[in-house]
């Protein structure tokens, strides 16, 4: 589904990631952990074609991202839901329209009217905030709205970058449960986080592989987690 083969990424003259080979199989659940600045966000961006590797190959749905034009990258992103660390919304649109944005840009805006959107907003507990502007949401509500936007197209893969950052434990658990539920629906999930308690909580409910970025390389984490 998404495969990184001997990937390296350099930025500003220094190598941030080196010789990384990871395969995200369909239906798998992965955590990516590591200290702040280790390259977790860069790793995720490589996975959805926002960055190109300086060495090696990134294959998304069997296509090398280097060979994809911008329209093809856009097409691939419709099959990958992304929850960003710094959640990005269109500030002038209400929450409901922001969540429906992937449908709108893919010409399926009408589908948002037929109940799918309401169902999804109910699922993330934001029905009462549908008409609010993003700036009016709390941190937890923004994260849940971001999760809802990431999954509204029923993507094959969900990549979440620190989806529980800056929110309380209870809300973190709620978002984690949403992502686990998605995985149980057959979606591939990768969560980048430095919150080890979140990983422990997830492992009780789902079979997850934990990858750790250390010294520019990615390795499978041991039993210390």
């Amino acid at each position: 589904m998404i495969e990184l083969e001997n990937v390296a990424y350099s930025y500003g003259g220094g190598e941030l990631l080196s010789d990384i080979s990871v395969k995200l199989a369909p239906g798998s659940f992965h955590f990516l952990t590591g200290p702040s600045g280790a390259g977790k966000t860069t790793f995720l961006k490589l996975c959805y074609g926002a960055l190109l590797p300086t060495a090696g190959h990134v294959r998304v749905f069997d296509a090398d991202v280097r060979g994809l034009n911008r329209d093809a990258v856009a097409g691939a992103r419709r099959k990958i839901g992304v929850v960003h660390q710094d959640v990005q919304f269109l500030d002038h649109l209400p929450v409901a329209d922001n969540i429906a944005l992937p449908l709108t840009v893919s010409g399926r805006g009408a589908e948002a009217q037929n109940g799918d959107l309401n169902e999804l907003m109910q699922w993330v507990g934001l029905t009462h905030r549908a008409a609010a502007l993003p700036a009016e949401l709390s941190g937890g509500e923004r994260q849940r709205a971001a999760v809802a936007r990431a999954v509204i197209m029923s993507p094959d893969v969900v990549l979440a970058d620190e989806p529980t950052g800056n929110i309380d434990w209870e809300m973190s658990q709620r978002i984690l449960r949403l992502l686990i539920e998605l995985n149980k629906m057959g979606k591939t999930v990768l969560i980048a986080t430095h919150d080890l308690s979140l990983i422990r909580a997830a492992k009780a409910e789902v079979q997850a592989r934990v990858l750790r970025i250390s010294n520019r390389r990615v390795q499978l984490a041991g039993a210390d987690l």
Binding site: A50, R70, D71, A74, R77, R78, H84, Q88, F89, V105
Partner: peptide, 16 residues
């Protein structure tokens, strides 16, 4: 630019 970044994140093509 921020709006464009969000649109690209959710799969909007340049044409759109």
């Amino acid at each position: 630019a921020q709006v464009i970044a969000v649109l690209r994140l959710v799969g909007a093509t340049d044409g759109y």
